[in-house]
Design a protein around this nucleic acid. Structure first.
Lengths: 363, 363
DNA sequence: CTGTTAGCGCATTCAG
DNA sequence: CTGAATGCGCTAACAG
């Protein structure tokens, strides 16, 4: 029985001998052998540790080139407890707003020479949870996430242990987690106030469920502005589809107390509403002033150009990612996380009733 | 000296003893100890190998739950030579077209329980190359990539070795790499033919450099249609900015042989052109018929609604990812790769001169 | 059905 | 300044 084991070992060594030109990727010891040094020396050269003579360093470099050696990041991460990767969890990628956030995060990660593992949660808390868990199992060094529905998200500090997490666009319940937001409430309020300055009194808002943090925050801004002005709220927060939105809008516009202005709470709902408005033959802004939350590339070319609250998507992703890398560098978790709120801009085009030939931006 | 080593080892064992409630994540041997079995048994249970009695399996499960054990994916990947991850390299994420592609890829990956490492190349061959190399070092099992400029991309089979790669949206030079494309040329040709049917003879095209595969392919479709009809080409393929596009369009529209119709080759250029057209006060479609390549969410709400060639972004990502997973499963590389071309649709709205109240889609 | 042994490729000890 | 030994957590290959 000793025999058989010996044989195996021998076979193994034999297999390893060539180490060259076979399909197997070269390892550090291949490099070491070729350079006539120990593996540690190679490791040191690769990691730029000073304590290697220029002489040997050069020999090692040469061997690396010759073998076209590339360190196995997997082994390195496994051994060194540092995976040089972060996780990114967002609801969707087909929403340009989220995509812009993601772009910023990947850009920051690249600056730090980190990889990004990305997953879409589809706004589903379970998918989100599974994604986070999966990333943790991959030992990401940190996580940037746009949490799904506020009250339902299963993301907690307990799950993450000592892995830093930054939430953005929407907060999580756990106050020890950093969060980066935009001025949802005040942005919306200012937009509604602008509508009021145009002389509107009956202003409707259109959005999705208030169980989404941003929807609720924007609704609160709307409510605040309306209450301050002493006007009556007119909210429809179930615009889940083009059809539903059409029927909601039809009811409103053909009913009594017809609104003379609306604000939509995101681009998706704006699209549904625009579609309904076109269908109903309503003229914007003469019959109905139209405003939205979240700018988009072609907002200037809709008819009429849309007045919107613009949120800094890229900046938000960037700030969130930078915050995460700070945490990673510091390697200590705060009792209570940061809460950063980024300013929004009001972009006045013509759908609100303004006559500007080019957009006017208010900070 | 034997002493000292012995001491170290002893210290180590001691440190390991508790294995409980400390910060350290539980390992398989923690589970094994708790369940009173060997680590292999735990491994087998976790990987669903049948050869474990239901009895022990249950004990192991219980131990896993109790310790809240999660396997270390890094170790697993390192050991098993299977990282269960793929790489995704795309030019940008802020372009909705690319973002949609990415969304589809991540969705397919999730179905396969694979992670996705994402990087944006910014259309830069060097960044792209570095990204690919980085992913290879992380031992992704495959790569899905939208290559940067055709002739410059440094992505080659040699770089990838036996790791499968699927290119999409744009091909690579290496014919052994699978590629998924859309009907760029014929789509554009059909669109131009439609313009011709509307009675246009002087049709200009606006795009970016032909060094981008898609630009060139679309230009070829334009050229083909114009030549077939016996009309003169009028191409401007340097629309790199809003300003440049404005000056190009101004020259064209105020010059002689004024075009009566244009086709833009992507959404970015469409935006530049739309801006210029608004600036110049040109009426669409009466003064100038307008068409584009690549549909977008709000194309219906521009003024007038835009007629475009619609390309199946999500489907392309999906097909590419599925192809990759096939290759991964098969574990053998083909001499010559697949070349899949997906059909596009012509979406007739009103900017081309059609009077449709709702879009008409031609397959 | 279950346990033992060994090693994936690297970097952290420690000893020269 | 350099090298040898050791083990990260897991699983393939065997041995019982």
């Amino acid at each position: 029985m000793m025999e058989s084991r010996h044989d195996r070992v021998a076979a193994r060594s034999r297999r390893r001998e060539p180490a060259q030109s076979t399909q197997r990727k070269p390892t550090m010891s291949d490099v070491a052998r070729l350079a006539g040094v120990g593996t540690m020396t190679v490791s040191r050269v690769l990691n730029g540790k000073a304590c290697v003579s220029a002489e040997t360093a050069k020999r090692v470099q040469a061997a690396v080139e010759q073998l076209n050696y590339r360190p196995n990041e997997l082994a390195r991460a496994f051994r060194g407890q540092r995976s040089r990767s972060i996780g990114l969890v967002i609801p969707y990628l087909f929403d340009p707003f989220f995509a812009n956030c993601a772009q910023a995060v990947t850009a920051v990660a690249r600056e730090h020479a980190y990889s990004v593992i990305i997953t879409t949660s589809d706004e589903d808390p379970d998918t989100e949870y599974a994604a986070a868990e999966q990333m943790l199992q991959r030992h990401v060094e940190g996580l940037v996430v746009i949490p799904s529905r506020f009250r339902q998200t299963r993301l907690t500090r307990a799950l993450f242990g000592k892995t830093p997490v930054v939430a953005f666009d929407r907060p999580v319940l756990d106050p020890s987690i950093d969060v980066v937001l935009v001025q949802n409430t005040s942005g919306t309020r200012r937009m509604v106030e602008h509508l009021i300055e145009h002389g509107h009194r009956r202003i409707a808002c259109l959005g999705l469920s208030r169980s989404l943090y941003t929807m609720n925050a924007r609704f609160l801004g709307y409510r605040r502005a309306m209450q301050d002005a002493g006007f009556k709220e007119d909210a429809a927060l179930g615009c889940e589809s083009k059809e539903i939105t059409l029927s909601i809008l039809k009811d409103k516009l053909y009913g009594k107390d017809t609104p003379t202005a609306v604000i939509t709470f995101n681009t998706l709902v704006a699209r549904y509403a625009l579609s309904a408005i076109a269908h109903l033959g309503v003229k914007v802004p003469s019959d109905l002033a139209f405003t939205g939350f979240d700018d988009f590339d072609l907002a200037e070319f809709t008819s009429p150009p849309l007045t919107v609250v613009r949120q800094p998507a890229q900046e938000m992703g960037q700030v969130a990612a930078n915050l995460l890398f700070e945490r990673i560098a510091r390697a200590e978790l705060p009792r209570t996380g940061n809460r950063i709120v980024l300013p929004v801009e009001i972009v006045l085009r013509r759908s609100c009733g303004c006559k500007h030939r080019t957009p006017v931006i208010i900070h």
